[in-house]
Every structure is written in structure tokens, then in C-alpha cells.
Design a protein around this nucleic acid. Structure first.
Length: 466
DNA sequence: GGAACTCGCCAC
DNA sequence: AAACGTGGCGAGTTCC
């Protein structure tokens, strides 16, 4: 990390100050509801035991127990794979990196065996109990948690977090989110404020490739890249984010096509993601009327069939063309940058980020293209974190920075300072940073969420920033 | 009996 | 020709 040929002085200073700012957040830590964690842990254990007992009665599990005898373990994926794919000779939906049949959520739910669904439900509860609540209790000192924020572990010069990891607390699964985030509290009389950069990686990518069409999408709030791609990929002339069925399709395209494409995925995976993952259409055979998620009129299969797309195979071919258009027409300058950047790395053996970091070593193409974007995007957050920390100390705020999640900052805020803190954060993140780093050629934007005074992290409300 | 590996799963 | 980027961590398994 501190290899001087791997960073400019500017980069070194950023990390030096970053380490100090993170240390202050770590030292203060965050309050945790110990009694709640203990109570919830017991409650989860009771629930898990009940579900386990229920599951023992299932035929598949009895067969499995009989086969393994004393060594039977419901949570051994190795045993499960053996029973399913060797003993019962079921064809695995997918395989692991070492070539064995997969026993992950995707694979098991596709087998359509009800007892496996209960197993997945139990797995989820165990994950919440053992990875989060247990870790919170283990790591807390006098009711305070001190997650580490490391700046020396990640190849792209991003940060990581550990003991416990504050950067992977459940959010998308509402049930898991509520259980885990209910444990995190502000200091007495304070409230938790969270500010995150909107689409920071897309914006920082634009600073590298400078694609005019991408810059237009970023600058013009009346345009919507994901909605435009959704229209194309779902063959709809008109779409509106406010229509619930259309919002589902837009999200499917955002997470199943646009982002994967930016990470270097390709049309075959994207087609399956959208049609079968989000759209709920079968992978095999011809699609029939009435299948898949509902649309404003009929279902997805009805719609696709009316557009002469009757199977995953045909849809994949369509997505191939959309991908080609995406990179060769819509974002052709981005595509040119990708080629140039890859060739340049191969020639030099390293790449230099706009933030002054140099990455050396053997990298695959996707790594080479992603590293500068991921790293620099995080450095924007880091610069902002440091600046806010400096102001906070100089002005002796009661409010304090307590954590960071790649593109978001968490602040334990005193209500009397809330408006002022929010104003400073907005100023630093969206105005001071682009002034300090002139290579930022697109506007930056942040969004904020706030919890009520003395309330935990699971109930957040949008906080309007001016 | 512990280190290293595999697998699964949480986040951005 | 190749084909989703970056982490941490818990449990099970294998290796020494």
C-alpha cells in the first residue's frame, strides 16, 4: 500500500488523512441495543428450532438422515449436494466453481421441492442471527460497536470494513433489514443521518470516458437512461416510472442489464436475468400465454409473444442486438475508451487513476476497466468524509461521523445541528469536491435519509437537502 | 487441532 | 477471444 511508486503525493495525503478521519469515527463508535440483540437472538433461535423440527418430518430430510446417520447435518451443503445430485440423481441447475452441483438459493428454489424452500428460509434466519446479531454482541464494548474502516486491503484502493463489517448489513430484504438495523442506535438525544452520492460510479466513469450521450443523461434530469433501456429491452413505446408495472421493468433493466453491462457482463446472462429472473418466464421451451409478471395489459409472455419473441432463445438474440447498439451507438465513446484503456494497460503493465493511485500487476480485462472507476468513486466519498471531519472538529460539533459505506456517510447528528450539518455536507460533497478536483466534469448529487431522535437505523425517512 | 480451502450470502 | 467488478464472514470440509 505504501509503496511510493503506487501513489502520488496527493494520493498518499488522501489516505493519510483518511486513516485519521476513519480512526476518529472508529474510536467514537456507534451505540447498539444489546438487550434487543440478545432478545432477538433467542427469539430467532426458537423460531429456527421450530422450523427445523417441522422440516425433520419431510420425506427428503428423512431419507437424508437415514443415509448419513449420526453424521447427518442439515446445514452441510456438501451432504445436500450429494443427496440431491448423486443419490437422487437430480440434474443440478448450476454448478460451483469446482464443478459440483450448486446448493445456493437460485439453484434450490428452481428445483421446486417444498422442503428445500423451508431450508432456505431457515438459512436466512441463521444468517441474520450468526453473521449480524451475534457479531454485534461479540464486538460491542459497553454497548458501543467500533467497526473498522480499512484503507489497506482492497486492490482498487477502495475501503473495507471489519469486526464487524459495517458495509454489508442487510438492506434489500425487508425482514432481515429490520431485524439487523433495529440494533443500531444513535447516541442519546441524537439521530442517525445518512448521505449517499447518487450514481457516483456512473458519474466518475464519465470523467474517464467523457461519452457525450452519457454526460447528457447525467446532466439532464428529464432524461432517464434506465427507462430508455427498459423501453428497448421490453419493446414498449411508452413507459412511465410512476406506473408500478413499469417501475418493476425499469428496475429489472437497471439491475439486470445496465449495471451488469458496466461491470463487463454480456447479453446471454442479461437476457436470462431479465426474462427469467425478474420477468419470471421459464428458461426452457416456448413461452405460453399468461406466464411471467403482470404488465399493464396481460402478462410478460403475452406481451413478448405479441412482439414475436416466443422463447428465451429468441429473447437472447434480441438482447444481443440491444447490447451491440448500446456499446456501438448509444455509448460509442465509452466503448472506445474501454478499448484504449485496455490496450494501454497491456502496453504499460499498470493503470493510473484520476485520483493519483497506480494499480500494477496482472489483471483481467474487466478488472482493468472497473478498477479506476470503483477506486476513484470511493475517493470522492473519502475526500468528502475528511473535509466534513475537519469542519466538524474545528467547529466542535456535537454531531459526529460514525461510518461509511463506499458511497454513503453515516452521521450521528444532534437535532439542533441537523440543518447546518446537512448544509455543510451538501456543500462539501457537491460543490467543494468538484472545485478541488477539476477532472470531475459532471455534476455530483447526494441524497439523504434520516431516522427519528433516539430511534434505530431501520426506520429511515427521506430528508430533503437544499 | 489448527490452517486453508469451499460455498453461500450480505453490501456497494 | 471472452464473458459481473470489490469486499467480509460463518460453517463445513479437507489437509497436514
Amino acid at each position: 500500500m505504501m509503496n511510493p511508486s503506487a501513489m502520488t503525493l496527493q494520493a498518499y495525503k488522501l489516505f493519510h488523512e483518511g486513516v485519521l478521519a476513519f480512526a476518529r469515527a472508529e474510536q467514537l463508535g456507534m451505540r447498539i441495543d444489546v438487550e434487543y440483540c440478545e432478545r432477538k437472538k433467542k427469539q430467532l433461535t426458537r423460531k429456527i428450532t421450530g422450523l427445523e423440527k417441522e422440516l425433520q418430518k419431510a420425506k427428503l430430510i428423512q431419507h437424508w438422515r437415514h443415509y448419513y446417520g449420526k453424521k447427518f447435518n442439515m446445514y452441510s451443503n456438501w451432504q445436500l449436494a450429494h443427496i440431491l445430485y448423486d443419490v437422487k440423481k437430480i440434474t443440478p441447475v448450476s454448478t460451483t466453481v469446482t464443478g459440483k452441483g450448486s446448493t445456493n438459493d437460485e439453484a434450490l428454489s428452481q428445483l421446486g421441492i417444498p422442503e428445500l424452500d423451508s431450508l432456505l428460509e431457515i438459512r436466512k434466519l441463521i444468517k441474520v442471527r450468526d453473521t449480524y446479531l451475534d457479531a454485534f454482541l461479540r464486538e460491542q464494548v459497553n454497548g458501543i460497536l467500533h467497526p473498522f474502516f480499512n484503507l489497506s486491503t482492497v486492490r482498487t484502493y477502495r475501503s473495507s470494513s471489519s469486526n464487524p463489517n459495517f458495509q454489508n448489513i442487510p438492506k434489500r430484504d425487508k425482514e432481515a433489514m429490520k431485524i439487523c438495523r433495529r440494533a443500531i442506535l444513535p447516541r442519546p438525544g441524537h439521530q442517525l443521518l445518512e448521505i449517499d452520492y447518487s450514481g457516483i460510479e456512473v458519474r466518475i466513469a464519465a470523467c474517464y470516458h467523457k461519452d457525450p450521450n452519457m454526460i447528457k443523461y447525467i446532466k439532464d434530469p428529464t432524461t432517464d437512461m434506465h427507462l430508455d433501456m427498459a423501453k428497448e429491452l421490453f419493446l414498449l413505446q411508452f413507459m412511465d416510472k410512476k406506473i408500478p408495472e413499469h417501475k418493476v421493468l425499469r428496475d429489472a433493466v437497471k439491475n439486470g442489464f445496465v449495471f451488469p453491462q458496466f461491470y463487463g457482463d454480456y447479453y446471454k446472462n442479461c437476457a436470462i436475468n431479465m426474462a427469467c429472473g425478474w420477468g419470471k418466464l421459464p428458461k426452457e421451451g416456448e413461452w405460453k400465454a399468461g406466464q411471467g409478471i403482470s404488465m399493464p395489459t396481460g402478462t410478460l409472455s403475452d406481451h413478448f409473444i405479441s412482439m414475436k419473441i416466443k422463447s428465451l432463445h429468441q429473447y437472447t438474440e434480441y438482447v444481443r442486438k440491444v447490447e451491440e447498439d448500446f456499446w456501438n451507438n448509444r455509448f460509442k465513446v465509452y466503448q472506445k475508451w474501454k478499448n484504449k484503456w485496455w490496450v494501454e494497460y497491456q502496453r504499460k503493465g499498470y493503470l493510473d487513476m484520476l485520483t493519483g493511485f497506480r494499480c500494477k500487476g496482472v489483471m483481467r480485462k474487466n478488472e482493468v476497466l472497473n478498477t479506476p472507476i470503483q477506486g476513484s468513486a470511493f475517493h470522492c466519498l473519502l475526500w468528502s468524509f475528511i473535509e466534513i471531519d475537519k469542519i466538524m472538529m474545528k467547529e466542535k460539533w456535537k454531531s459526529r461521523l460514525i461510518g461509511q459505506i463506499h458511497d454513503a456517510i453515516v452521521i450521528d447528528t444532534h437535532p439542533s445541528e441537523l440543518e447546518y450539518v446537512a448544509k455543510i455536507v451538501k456543500q462539501v460533497t457537491c460543490h467543494d469536491l468538484p472545485k478541488a478536483w477539476p477532472w470531475i466534469i459532471v455534476p455530483l448529487d447526494v441524497e439523504a435519509d434520516i431516522c427519528e431522535v433516539d430511534q434505530s437505523w431501520n426506520k429511515k425517512f427521506n430528508y430533503k437537502l437544499i
